[in-house]
Amino acid sequence: MTSTAAHSPFPSGRAVPTPVTGGRGGLLASVVGVAVGSVFFLFPIYWMLVTSVKPPSEWLTSPPVFIPDRLYFQNYTDALFNWGGLKGLVDSGVVAVSATAIGMVLGTFAAYSLARFRIGGTNLSFFILSLLFMPPVAIGIPMFLFWSALGLVDTYIALIVQYLTFTIPFIAWVMKGFFEDLPVDLEESALVNGASRLRAFVDIVLPNVRPALVATALLAFIFNWNEFSIAVLLSRGRVTTLPFILPTMMESHYVLWGDIAAMAAVGALPVVIIAFLLQRYLVRGLSFGAIRSE
């Protein structure tokens, strides 16, 4: 089998075979289907953006306001400055970038050994994979007690290290698939020429899977950026990631729809920008991460 990792799953421009819907009727149905789907999947995003620029008097009107007369940006200043959105951006950034970076180093090395040396056999692989599936609530109490015993609740360290429990398995799982697809001949010739294993890995293997590394890191970053359950358990007031801040905006007396939507938009913006900049990698990472298994 050739290395699937080396080319995009989306061959653009060439005529596409039609596995199911033949004929012009099928094409029409496809266009309609995609159009309807786009409206459905994008309308709530529009609703979020439009709510984020509505004045309070338009948050709960009946009928709802779909196009505000004027743009009201105070929700954004409220979200960023009164509700700590700015600090949330910084904290989310620190935690997500650190957890992703550390996870990439540890996870990629582990994936390589799992793929090439089959260390730990299928049990270690399955163990790592199954951690990805564990409901966070299952380890919530011991996890909380562990970090508070170390006096590290509500710190960057606690969140970053705890995020590694799903970041590493994810990266290891996805990267293992890429490494398995990579022909061993490349490394072998390097080894024959006297390179150490580390050299061979760094100089020969990694450059060959660079697109995969980008895609995997991107997805890991998105997961870390969005993480909620663990943040709720391990954060108080000093380290406040954006998903953590959001529910605190649900007050006893009033739901601040505009502020919440602004905060949501602020939180979504970085991942959406990155997703579009790296869309080629994102799509590929998703597909290969999932298509590969074991």
Binding site: F144, S148, R236, E251
Partner: peptide, 21 residues
């Protein structure tokens, strides 16, 4: 500030560890 829903859980989780927050 704690979220109104979940306030009890958060106070208890903090206080059982004798935290001085």
């Amino acid at each position: 500030g704690l979220p109104f829903v979940g306030q009890y859980e958060k106070i208890v989780a903090e206080m059982v560890t004798r935290s001085s927050v």
